[in-house]
Computed example of a mutant assay.
Amino acid sequence: MKLLILNLGSSSIKYQLLENNKFLIKGLIERIGMSGSRIKQIVLKKQILKKSILNKKIDNHFLGIKKMKNLLCDEKVITEEIYAIGHRIVHGGYFFSKPTIISDNVKKKIKKLFKIAPIHNYINYMGIKISEKIFKTSIQVAVFDTEFHSTIPKKSYLYAIPDEFYLKHYIRSYGFHGISHKFVSKTAIQYLKNNKVKLITMHLGNGSSVTAINSGKSVETSMGFSPNSGLIMGTRSGDIDSNIIFHALKKGFKIDELIEILNKKSGMLALSGYSDMRDIKKKYEKGDKKAILAYEMYAYRVKKYIGISISVMNGVDALIFTGGIGENDILMRKLICKDLDFFGIKLDKKKNNFNFINEKKNVIEIQKKKNKVKILVIKTNEEFQISEDILFILKKNN
């Protein structure tokens, strides 16, 4: 059975073609809508990895999916052979708490959540619509980032506002990046051989979040009602005082203008002039003051949520870095782990200075030798987790 997994981010498309849960083709289209868009596709044939890298500007996700389809066809993948397509959907809201086969009714509910997750849910929805046109015989399945956080207790997910906001409008903390947090926490539990382990998983990328996981269950997370809360992100503000919005409205700002500012013009972009951490790092290394401040603020906010997570679980056994920044940014890992000695978190600078390209393993330990708390860098694989969830729901419905 062939499965195609689509994972559309705000500026990227990850995809994997799997058969019997083993990948045949995987690809990454990144910097969509930015200069320097690029595609990297890896094809497994007779245990040989073939890489295809194309540099071409890709203005939007529609063109990205079309390009992906052409690359799959170049490898003689017949679209009718793809039994199901799994879509990562950021916000399941109060509608969805498990993987779901997509119907017209499901699409309507996903559309209703556009206002809560304006950057992602629209992109995810478009991924479904485009896929339905291109892969007409495939079953479409939605896997939701909010699902993993359905175990967070009521004392955590409720806001201290009148009941009607929750009872009538379903306003509560939902949490996001659940697919990634689920994958890396399962990987860590297997690696550490401990089902009761207390983990803090940090998915750090263009969008970022921290989750406290106790015995495999999410108990606290930095993102709340929308993906704009919590950490500082590429273009998203993260936590701000709600009265700033009311103050801005009184000053003449429009609601749609503020939505645009807080979601697409804030975060690292507002602090440094760049949204991609790789660009900011280049400026940091040249001594750019804005880039240095942006790096320090980003790390500070992550440390803050590490402290929250430790207090919620009354301890931590392992700290986990994942996502594009978490897996690859040596400097950011160093800044985040600095001055956490009190919690038994001590980074080994030498071990931290590694590159996943040169590593055969997906889990790297970077803590000091006799460290109380493990510090792990784990390569996330949301697409593999989505494929497992798809197989589960397909079996359940057969």
Score class of each variant (00 low, 15 high):
Lys282Ile: 15
Lys286Ser: 10
Ala299Asn: 11
Tyr284Asn: 09
Lys303Ala: 08
Lys289Ile: 09
Lys303Leu: 13
Ala299Thr: 13
Tyr300Phe: 12
Ala318Pro: 00
Lys281Asn: 10
Gly307Ser: 02
Phe342Ser: 14
Ile330Ala: 00
Ile310Val: 14
Ser311Glu: 10
Arg333Pro: 03
Gly326Arg: 01
Gly267Met: 14
Asp279Pro: 12
Asp276Cys: 13
Lys289His: 04
Asn314His: 06
Met297Trp: 00
Val312Met: 14
Lys304Arg: 14
Val316Lys: 04
Thr322Ala: 06
Ser309Ala: 13
Ser272Cys: 13
Leu331Pro: 00
Asp341Glu: 12
Tyr305Trp: 04
Ile336Asn: 00
Tyr300Ile: 09
Met268Trp: 10
Ser275Gly: 04
Ala270Val: 12
Asp329Phe: 09
Ala294His: 03
Lys281Asp: 05
Ile330Glu: 08
Ser272Phe: 11
Ser266Tyr: 04
Ile310Thr: 07
Phe321Gln: 12
Leu331Trp: 02
Met268Phe: 11
Leu335Thr: 08
Tyr305Leu: 10
Ala318Lys: 02
Met268Leu: 15
Asn328Arg: 11
Lys290Val: 03
Asp317Val: 09
Leu293His: 06
Lys282Arg: 12
Asp341Val: 11
Gly287His: 10
Ile325Ala: 04
Lys289Ser: 06
Asn328Met: 05
Met277Ser: 14
Arg301Tyr: 10
Cys337Gly: 01
Ile292His: 00
Gly287Met: 09
Gly344Gln: 06
Gly323Ile: 07
Phe321Glu: 04
Leu271Cys: 06
Tyr298Ala: 12
